[in-house]
Amino acid sequence: MPIEIPKDKWPGSIKIVTIGATSAEGGTRTKSISVGGQASMPYLHYEAPMPNKPVIAIEIKSRKPDDWSPLLVEAWGETMAEPAQWAKKADEAGADIIVVALTLADSPEDAVRVVKSVLSATGLPLIVWGPGQVEKDNELLVPVSEATNGEKIVLGICEDKNYRTIVATAMANGHLVQARTPMDVNLSKQLNILISDMGMPKERILMDPTTGALGYGIEYGYSVMERLRLAALQGDAMTQLPMIVTPGYETWKTKESKIGEGVPEGWGDWKARAINWETLTAIALVESGADIVVLRHPESVKRVKGAIEELVTV
């Protein structure tokens, strides 16, 4: 019995966003990374080809964090003390993009120095996050943005309260922004509207709908992403942006990943479980439409990369 495969023909598609600029493009990256361009729900190649596959970013900090899980410390070792070394190792571990997370302890000079050192240590495109406080973010990100003019860095994290300064400096220096809203379709759209109302081209915005880790609200992030992607395909211009999510950050603060002792026996082997936790969180998000997943453990990077390869192989 011949079955006719039902195919959705969507009126909308996702904007292609390019991160990082090569020397030909006015920057110093050895290659730039493009995400987006989909015209179907994730990996339904029989409906529409997928011009860009999802990519993996590895998060490093501007100074060695004292609250990361021993499993992560074991994986990255001594490099954690030196962002440039850490970035290099992340590059080797298979990162497509490096996320440099600045901290409250950084001065503007520190921030610029760290970002520049990472830029020279690796040819990968960069995402730079402020420490997450409005004033401090502005204080650090503006000089970083100016010092890296033309590199097409992604500056983050813009939220509804602090977007103006970050967007303004990103626009002035040819960078991109990461726009984060707390797991709500409408809030995502609203922030995208506010940012593009400032004159920022949509090709330079990544939306971050926020996710929860497995067991900690992943289902909300998962559905919000599916809904944003559906809305985009249905033609809603304000949701036609690639999505970035941070399963590494979310999972490594859960006790399932972070802690090895004093946990229920039913949780099984710590290391395997911890990496499963990050990997499975990331996979669920990749299935729901993530274009960039920011991870922390090299083993998870390897596994998620492998899964993406299988998903994009037609």
């Binding site: 289902e219 909300y220 026996e265 395997a272 499963n276 936790w277 669920a284």
Partner: peptide, 22 residues
């Protein structure tokens, strides 16, 4: 268990009624 537990949690999360308040 190290795989079973995360899968059981994932299953629970995916099958949670999304109509209930978040």
């Amino acid at each position: 268990p190290e795989l079973l537990y995360p899968l059981l949690v994932l299953r629970e999360n995916i099958y949670t009624d999304p109509q209930k308040p978040i």
